[in-house]
Measured scan of single mutants.
Amino acid sequence: MPVRRGHVAPQNTFLDTIIRKFEGQSRKFIIANARVENCAVIYCNDGFCELCGYSRAEVMQRPCTCDFLHGPRTQRRAAAQIAQALLGAEERKVEIAFYRKDGSCFLCLVDVVPVKNEDGAVIMFILNFEVVMEKDMVGSPAHDTNHRGPPTSWLAPGRAKTFRLKLPALLALTARESSVRSGGAGGAGAPGAVVVDVDLTPAAPSSESLALDEVTAMDNHVAGLGPAEERRALVGPGSPPRSAPGQLPSPRAHSLNPDASGSSCSLARTRSRESCASVRRASSADDIEAMRAGVLPPPPRHASTGAMHPLRSGLLNSTSDSDLVRYRTISKIPQITLNFVDLKGDPFLASPTSDREIIAPKIKERTHNVTEKVTQVLSLGADVLPEYKLQAPRIHRWTILHYSPFKAVWDWLILLLVIYTAVFTPYSAAFLLKETEEGPPATECGYACQPLAVVDLIVDIMFIVDILINFRTTYVNANEEVVSHPGRIAVHYFKGWFLIDMVAAIPFDLLI
């Protein structure tokens, strides 16, 4: 008679799926529990143990900040960024110097990925580790590398530091407007667009060049630039800015003055950032001319202004700041037409079709709590990747769950009947059967004279019903998954307890 339990259901295979997918890609990662103190490590794979030199037993239950890997060259700011990422709910990448158990130093890129439950609360953290440099290539500990984003994938490793954006290309926007319009339909740009040429040739750093990471940081200074100062900065030398009595002219307006920039070969870094931020506020060169004239017309309804409409929906549905990093990277690809469009465009503009998908598509409701890094690593669709929660398995109709209350009560009843059979069957065979043979035949009273025979008949009927119930009862397979398919249940029961239950259900007393 089957006594099969499996009270692990309803099970959740999400954690096993993450481990299996990460292991298949030869990654070095740990999984931490966000619900406990210090976000203790609950799993670390073999790749991480080989990377740091510690065994799994030495890593388990330690804080996922990996303070046991810190050393003299470990930056405090990087460690603080990892700790801050564990307090938030967004994906974050941090470069930090770690030390192995043998004392060797290596520069590592740590990717902190939160995993949320159905309520939107962070319950786990996945920390992925990628070695960037070994100890002989690690720089000085005073050099802070965590304020910069990861290198873009479309640049060669040897040319990542030679990417320079020439400031004269930004200063000569109005001069290039006529050349853009003359391109017409034969050019790649839309009317009114501004073409910015980027020099990728390796050259020595000069005062006129600005690194790509500095251009990325310009967006942080746009908020500090007032509207009046932006307007004066875009007017140009024809209309000098008016300053109040006793007030000095704005240095932001002076930063885009061609006369002032041409007199000296070098520009201050602050002026460069502010000038680029001011130019980015204009949607095209037409807006710059309109600002000089004193009238700013409404933005025209053409394809170039609607190019950012799908980007707005993608940004609203993005799951991490990696989408913004990807957008900034692609927006700086050289030799393309940049349409400086305000994100607050007309909502009635139709979304044009684009061959290049900048932001990841909208994630469906079932995966809105899973970050983009987890979705990318697992390579699963929205119909396959579940949320991290207890999910009731989908069972067929008329199927009994093996952990249901009805099955528990039924098993206790069958257990009592088995005990009765084990006690009274030998007793009936030894004593009652002998008395029946010696006594007179009682054929007239039937079952009324033999109450134990009636009980034995009921017990046999219950055993037959138990066999039928076992054909529709779920079970737990070797992978700790609840199986509810009727065919698989029948095959599993035939290979197991079916023969024993059938022999126990045969009414031998009635056959004798």
Rank of each mutant, 00 (worst) to 15 (best):
V115N: 01
G381Y: 13
V198Y: 05
L200Q: 15
R35G: 11
D46V: 05
D287S: 09
G6Q: 14
L127G: 01
D16H: 12
E91R: 14
T152W: 15
A79G: 05
A228L: 14
S354D: 10
L107A: 14
I330Q: 14
Q25P: 11
D67N: 09
E90T: 08
L315F: 07
K344R: 05
K28M: 13
E274A: 11
K101T: 01
H147S: 15
S153C: 07
P251N: 04
A40E: 05
S318G: 11
G306M: 06
C105R: 13
S261W: 05
A32I: 01
R312A: 13
N369F: 12
S26I: 01
R77N: 10
E289T: 08
D213T: 14
Y99W: 01
S354A: 14
P334T: 01
P157S: 06
D321K: 09
S322F: 12
S153G: 09
T216C: 03
D102H: 01
P347N: 03
G224Q: 05
N12F: 07
S322K: 11
E289K: 02
R271D: 10
Q61C: 14
P168Y: 01
V3K: 07
E130L: 03
P10Q: 05
V325L: 14
Y54F: 14
D346W: 05
I18E: 03
M137C: 05
L109V: 08
S104P: 03
A253S: 11
G189P: 15
S354H: 08
G314K: 09
Q247C: 10
G294E: 12
N128V: 15
R77Y: 12
R366V: 11
P258A: 14
Q25R: 11
K364L: 14
V377W: 04
L86W: 01
P299W: 05
G186R: 14
A303H: 04
E208R: 06
G47P: 01
V384A: 04
V370L: 08
M291H: 15
R273Y: 12
T13Y: 13
K135T: 05
K161H: 05
P2R: 05
G246E: 15
R27L: 06
A382K: 12
N220A: 12
A244Y: 09
L171H: 09
W154V: 06
N317I: 09
S153I: 04
P10V: 13
K21D: 12
S284G: 11
V59S: 01
P298T: 09
P10E: 13
E289I: 06
V36D: 04
E214K: 05
P310W: 10
P237I: 08
E214F: 15
A121W: 09
K344M: 12
G294F: 07
A121D: 11
R273C: 07
D259V: 11
L385Q: 07
L173C: 13
I333Q: 15
A85N: 01
L267T: 12
V122N: 06
M133D: 06
A303W: 14
L200C: 13
G88Y: 13
P114L: 01
S243C: 08
N128E: 13
P258I: 07
K101M: 01
I31H: 01
R328D: 13
V196G: 01
Y327D: 07
D119C: 06
A203Q: 06
F163R: 15
L15I: 15
P63F: 01
H309G: 14
R252N: 05
G149N: 07
A382I: 06
A9Q: 15
L385C: 04
P245A: 12
D111K: 08
F163W: 08
S318F: 09
P237K: 14
D321G: 12
S255Y: 05
E208Y: 11
E357R: 05
A185K: 09
C108V: 04
M308P: 06
E134G: 14
R62W: 07
A160E: 15
P63G: 08
G183N: 09
D197I: 01
E50A: 12
T375F: 14
V384Q: 08
N146F: 15
P386M: 02
P251R: 11
T337M: 14
V41C: 03
P251Q: 11
A142C: 15
Q84R: 15
L210N: 06
S250N: 09
